[in-house]
Design a binder for these strands. Sequence first.
DNA 1: GAGATGTGTCAGAAATCTTTGACAGGTCCC
DNA 2: GGGACCTGTCAAAGATTTCTGACACATCTC
Lengths: 128, 128
Amino acid sequence: MPEVPPPAPTGDALLKVLTALGNPHRMRIVAALLENRTYVSALAREIGISRPLLHMHLQRLEAAGLVTGTLEAAEDGKTMKYYDVTPFVCELTPHTVARAAATLTDAEADTAGRTAQQPDRSAKEEAK
Amino acid sequence: MPEVPPPAPTGDALLKVLTALGNPHRMRIVAALLENRTYVSALAREIGISRPLLHMHLQRLEAAGLVTGTLEAAEDGKTMKYYDVTPFVCELTPHTVARAAATLTDAEADTAGRTAQQPDRSAKEEAK
DNA sequence: GAGATGTGTCAGAAATCTTTGACAGGTCCC
DNA sequence: GGGACCTGTCAAAGATTTCTGACACATCTC
């Protein structure tokens, strides 16, 4: 097993995780997916929301790196998208929050697209 | 130190923490307050936002239990509200999220039924 | 008194997030 | 050819959150 480094998330990454998890539906989605992986339609029926809505929520969770979706072919040939939760670990304390806040790229001028994910980060800010 | 009990936050409490922390300004507020406590007006100048806006953000953070504000009298008699960050600890993993999701009192919009339930227990300041 | 500081509140824009309904495609089985 | 499933997308409403400009009060100093 490789060394487990301190996550030390960048400000943007932590912000994405927090906004992704800060929603009742998405918390329930993680809970349902942790118990047993399923595909989109079944999950929508399970938690009682529409498919387009679930699709959006899953996209948000996946963009934050909390779940991963894989397109799989069932025996009968139908393609279904199964989702699994990522074994993420994130410790939330004043210190970790402050540390992340220091690397927040506030004016996020990312191209407006639906596949918005991990913007490149190269600038490290040096305070004081 | 004695045994540190697992926080085991209720779904609503965790949700409140996540939505409170899931905002660039509020993350920066926690960071600034961790470095040194201040009063509202000074903090507003420090991070460059208006006082009413900061007031709202602080209220949100305090409602989540992440910071605490105390009204103190300066030497010259002016009353200023100083804020400190609470030493919160919250581990974010699929398991903790799922555990919290199980106790979510989400559907608060109960159109027909009237269930006795007050998730909000805020102590009001005594009006002058 | 005026002017500086501090506190808090309020309505209303502005921006963002959530949700719905309809649409597109695909594969199977009767 | 339907249906019954699966996948995805889109535009537009609906509901929240964010933000700004005012306003109110208080104290101290000039």
